[in-house]
Design a protein around this nucleic acid. Sequence first.
DNA 1: TAGTCTCTGGAATATCTGTTCCGTCCACCC
DNA 2: GGGTGGACGGAACAGATATTCCAGAGACTA
Lengths: 293, 293
Amino acid sequence: MRAGTFVPTTLRDVEVEERIGKAGASLTPAERRVAEVVLAQPQLVAFGTVADLAEAASSGAATVVRLASKLGFDGFTGLQASVQHALANQLRPAAERIREPAATDVIGRHQQLEMENVVTTLGALSAEAMADVVDHLADVSARVLVLSGDASLGVARQLVGDLCSLRDGVTVVDGNDVAVRRAVALARQGDVLMVLDLRRYDRWVIDAAKAARQNGVWIVAVTDSLLSPLASLAERTLTVAAAGGGPFDSHVGTLALANVLVAGVADRLRVHAADRLDRTEAAWRAGSSLVER
Amino acid sequence: MRAGTFVPTTLRDVEVEERIGKAGASLTPAERRVAEVVLAQPQLVAFGTVADLAEAASSGAATVVRLASKLGFDGFTGLQASVQHALANQLRPAAERIREPAATDVIGRHQQLEMENVVTTLGALSAEAMADVVDHLADVSARVLVLSGDASLGVARQLVGDLCSLRDGVTVVDGNDVAVRRAVALARQGDVLMVLDLRRYDRWVIDAAKAARQNGVWIVAVTDSLLSPLASLAERTLTVAAAGGGPFDSHVGTLALANVLVAGVADRLRVHAADRLDRTEAAWRAGSSLVER
DNA sequence: TAGTCTCTGGAATATCTGTTCCGTCCACCC
DNA sequence: GGGTGGACGGAACAGATATTCCAGAGACTA
């Protein structure tokens, strides 16, 4: 049996998944390796043999059978039957879902919507604009301020968090009016301001951006349209698609954009950032703050 | 082996179909019966045995093998392998075909990556799981705590921000150890905890989740795998795909998932939330906090 | 450091499964 | 009506596969 090709999560067996999730903590290392393969390559279970699974997980056949029993199945045969059954059931719905343009189910609609947000947003990003923005964000001699409307504050924080891992001097401008004005007032020429806001713009954001511009700060706007009031203040404007399936805008496209920029900055600051990441890693390790499982 | 359910033509094995069509005329009556079953219930071939197929076609095992050979396969084994292969191919939806021409440029690569994250993450979300989680998040009599690893804190905040617009009592558990412990200690039975963390899990997050569980809090985990330590603590586990093009994980899929949940909660709390949004809107209008352009 | 417990994979084994062989049956033809 | 050819399925056989057992290795403890 050849090793299975990639199978998206949609097709995974819920029954098996549940049992693995429940027993997950009590699995031994070797059993865990097998379980990972089961989750990642269900076809290997459905079509393959104990030996195939064991080889894929670099374990012995006995371990495979033990795992199946521990999950409550009647040996490997039971596990296999469960996966086969689920796989067979998934076949029909998958086909029907493709035919119906997913207009009815919420999840499918969101799937389509968010994909469009990603495609549109990153599709609108030119290599030149990206290089320019990355250049500025990667300029360690400049401070980077990030200003965001309330609705996108979380995404902004996410971006800032990542950037902070790569370099110093990146901050979110937030808080009350006094704090914002102070932060902007302290910005000087050579600094960089990323301002992030979508339609129904927050007045204070625009005001703060205006003030920053008068201080000679280099501004990049991330907004929904080139007609945005932010666009006229910024040296560079990156537009994002933010169609939401619920009552709010979706910032999935924006976050995808942020990820691209972060990757660009990381690439630009390669050695500098690597050193930082190493030091951070060492600190985490010393405190054993992170666990593998 | 149970008889398979109906499978639409799209899912049939083209390879086998072709060969049956070609040899169709020269098939004996019994072979023809077997061939009918092969076409009608490919799963019986993929998952079953010679005996199963023979029984389904009211024929002998020898006839099954003869048919397979007559079709040019290397015995029943060859036929089975062909059907399995075709089945596995049909199992992967459009998502994978999209990425086939692997993009070379950074932006294109991210585009594909993030789309896969969205598709995979939302694809893994079952309607049932979503309904359950939304039910709990929309329960206004419960408090909702959100606990997130450092790397995904921004997304968590984004989620909480949206939820706060829809209902009261939603908070991010964050800050120093003392604050976290206090927040978790104050949680009581009936409350809801959403814990969000990906591999290389933050120890404090796991510890806090464990404490919450002992308090009888209903937990939903949003994590990268069912083998995550969070999965065994949670009543529900939603898995996310987080492949990143840069040095960090991408939380685009997670944010898409969050958006779906928010939309679900908004729908569930329709009138309640509408009233809240109206009041918020009025406040903004009174202060002219938002501008159209 | 010695001892115990768990984990682990290899080997033996019993079961299952695909394949082949062969006797029987039926249809067609001389 | 007798003979011949192919079709068919039961049964034996050989190979593969799941399962169980066991001994060695490693970790943790006293």
